[in-house]
Design a binder for these strands. Structure first.
Length: 220
DNA sequence: CTCCCGATAT
DNA sequence: ATATCAGGAG
């Protein structure tokens, strides 16, 4: 396991590698962000942005999602994948926003997670990105990077990963750290072919060193 | 735990 | 062909 100073070194290096790390889901208000994050489950930002470019022209407020048939919304979301669940969730979610929240996106994490299709990770992204509250959303990248580096244990749940990060990282750095880890995971410490060769964190990374040894063996 | 699911990279 | 993608619900 990495100690406090080693974790600090990791985060600083990630900051140098990706100084511009920020939310890549295109949106112009909290409602659009909420929709985009719900759509992003098990999909990619690039694909979500492609779909929302047209989607947000057609659907500007919660009422607009209820004004069309379920089939029409499904058609508009088809290319994202998981589109049946997502269509149904978004319709119900819009209904609740209108009935309970005056058509606005609630700012409280505890309220957000009550919405269909919104779990802990999605709520964390919304409060952090839309409302500036400190949060660490643990997605597939944050989880993989934390486990490879040894910030947490392999068997830890996503909630345990989040708790560890919240304990090890100062609260005023939660949001930026979360984005740096995402960028590091998405563009460098990738799931398939991580760039261990050119990784400034290699001396700190047990998984990276294991991979390098394996590579060494294979090229003999 | 399984299911939902199309697009993309490898 | 197969793994992976800003997960959530049953």
């Amino acid at each position: 396991m990495l100690n406090q100073k080693q974790i600090r070194d990791c985060l600083d290096q990630m900051g140098k590698m990706f100084p511009e790390a920020a939310c890549e889901l295109k949106h112009s208000n909290p409602f659009e962000l909420l929709i985009a994050v719900v759509l992003s489950a098990q999909s990619t930002d690039a694909l979500v942005n492609k779909v929302t470019k047209n989607l947000f022209k057609k659907y500007k407020q919660p009422e607009d999602y209820l004004a069309v048939s379920l089939e029409e919304l499904q058609n508009d979301l088809r290319s994202i994948g998981l589109y049946r669940n997502k269509s149904k969730n978004i319709r119900k979610l819009c209904e609740i926003l209108i009935e309970k929240y005056n058509g606005q996106v609630p700012q409280e994490h505890s309220e957000l997670v009550k919405l269909p299709g919104v779990g802990r990770k999605t709520a964390n992204v919304v409060v952090s990105v839309a409302f500036g509250q400190p949060a660490i959303a643990v997605d597939t990248h944050v989880e993989r990077v934390s486990k490879r580096l040894g910030i947490c244990r392999w068997k830890d749940s996503v909630l345990e990963v989040e708790k560890t990060l919240m304990k090890k990282v100062p609260k005023d750095e939660w949001s930026i750290t979360h984005h740096r880890m995402i960028f590091f995971g998405r563009y460098h410490c990738k799931a398939k072919n991580p760039n261990c060769d050119s990784c400034p964190l290699l001396d700190l990374c047990r998984e990276g060193q294991k991979r390098m040894r394996k590579q060494e063996k294979a090229t003999q």
